[in-house]
Design a binder for these strands. Sequence first.
DNA 1: TTGTAGGCGTTATCAA
DNA 2: TTGATAACGCCTACAA
Lengths: 331, 331
Amino acid sequence: VAATIKQIAKLAGVAPTTVSLVLNGNPRIGEKTRQHVLKIAADLDYYPNHSGQLLKKGRTDSIALLSSYFQNIFKMELVGGIEQGIFGSKYQLKQFLSQQGTESDKAKEILFGKMADAVILMSYLPPASFMEKMRESKKPVILVEETLPGHPGVEFDNYLGAYRAVEYLAAKGRRRIAISLGLKAYMGHRFVDDRLKGYIAAQRDLGLGYSNIIEIPNYTLEAGHEMFGEISGDRSPDALFCASGDLTAAGFLQEALANGVRVPDDIAVIGFDDSIIARSTCPGLTTVRQPVQAMGKAALDLAVSILEETDPTAWERVVRFEPEIVVRQTA
Amino acid sequence: VAATIKQIAKLAGVAPTTVSLVLNGNPRIGEKTRQHVLKIAADLDYYPNHSGQLLKKGRTDSIALLSSYFQNIFKMELVGGIEQGIFGSKYQLKQFLSQQGTESDKAKEILFGKMADAVILMSYLPPASFMEKMRESKKPVILVEETLPGHPGVEFDNYLGAYRAVEYLAAKGRRRIAISLGLKAYMGHRFVDDRLKGYIAAQRDLGLGYSNIIEIPNYTLEAGHEMFGEISGDRSPDALFCASGDLTAAGFLQEALANGVRVPDDIAVIGFDDSIIARSTCPGLTTVRQPVQAMGKAALDLAVSILEETDPTAWERVVRFEPEIVVRQTA
DNA sequence: TTGTAGGCGTTATCAA
DNA sequence: TTGATAACGCCTACAA
């Protein structure tokens, strides 16, 4: 049903080549023929077959985002940032979902199979050997969140984020600061380790002799609710640093307030990410801001500068973003 | 750099056909040759060129989601639902962004250009002529949120949602119920009209002689904050129905609580959507639930059953979802 | 069991 | 100014 160049050519009484030239705005075709062809193309509602073009050109003019996460606010904001940057550019964003653990295979499939010119890989650290291989094949893979030195990536200083959160709480007079984390659930994800290390280092540097690590199964509202059960007892914390994210912090908040625990008077709460959730809770959630949108944009920029070869150093650049404490009402 | 069937054939000392047959699991190739070819393919890290395959097959095995919205929770949840359904199927989801007003052109480009086999079009009502044309060309366009009778779509009963919200508030003894809406900003979007009509009808049916329509510029937290300024005065409402969504309701809540207005004692608040926002506010937001994930899934199912021709009626089916009041603490 | 040949829709090279 | 021809990588009837 879709029109092709050949059909237009036949109807117009010219050769396919001519049609192609006209459609691509080549000036060496006579005005009369041009108009004629254009008219017929419009009549037939012609749109170029994408596969045909790609096959010929060898480029796809699209960039893939690959992740193993479904619905998730971090991803939404990352995509938002990428979209902002990609819109109006010549690139298309294609999102792919991969089963956990199959990320690098999927990336190879995408890149070698010419489904996209570059892959932005979210929250997954592939083996160095994989990255080197991609580098040799000139197939850009941009790592987001979990990065590898010497390979293109975008990261956030999670260590510093945690450190500053503890510092901030201590400056507010808190002495028994607990941290919530998915140590087991997100095992192998560096961001978990880094946040924990930052917490421990800050405790040590500030001479705080208290440590309380609340292990949670996932980063949901419900997990936040359940945290509330963990903070009672005689050595209960006077502050909770939800390194597990804003959503868990919001969950905790709900449960605390429902049980008559005052925030921040009885317990200060600080989240992580500064997502839309942190801004919409009540009281407003004090949190460690991670500029996720900007990170998405940065990943895209990295991909584009590698593809367009505008910057030879881009192949080994890791763009690092710094945390910022956003003070609202919970701490 | 990417390996092709020809290269494998040459290295293996067989014809390209043989390689293709092996790779596609055709049983008529001898085991020895099969193993040999497979080994070489693996060595070369072969992945089939997608464009080549598509061009030949005439199908893309992918489904497009087209919208003119960037970051937005509704979209996130819709995508979530689609992904759940698509994962494991043979289809790929491709997301496209279009400038507002160019949706149908973009859809044609996608469909006729063979970038995807079907388009799921979010929150945009195209002209009927466009839908008919697509129908004739056997190019499925699935409408989400804004639908057209006789064309495949997924909709939500916004009228009933609003009606029930008012009914619920009235049953709770509220008499002066205000509604917030982006009448101007979302002009032409049927969901706005429908919610307003539901509100008006319920007021009338229940004999409530009060009407207060708060016009807001967009559906953000900040717009919610500003609503608070609108509800003072002597005929101030005792309930606010945020037909403008949970996020605006959350904004209002923040401002109200910050100003010592008690919710729901002084004013009841009810949101719309039951997004993650509604679940994470404090107090929990009573809201009109719209099963966005299920709607995404339904849109996908519709697309698939049209593509696979499993159900001839799918071409004209509009799947309708019903509201449900989710009672939490604000009303 | 394996190979030959042609074509999907496009574009680039070269010739007319 | 226009057209014939070939090629991108893959698949598939048909032939061997």
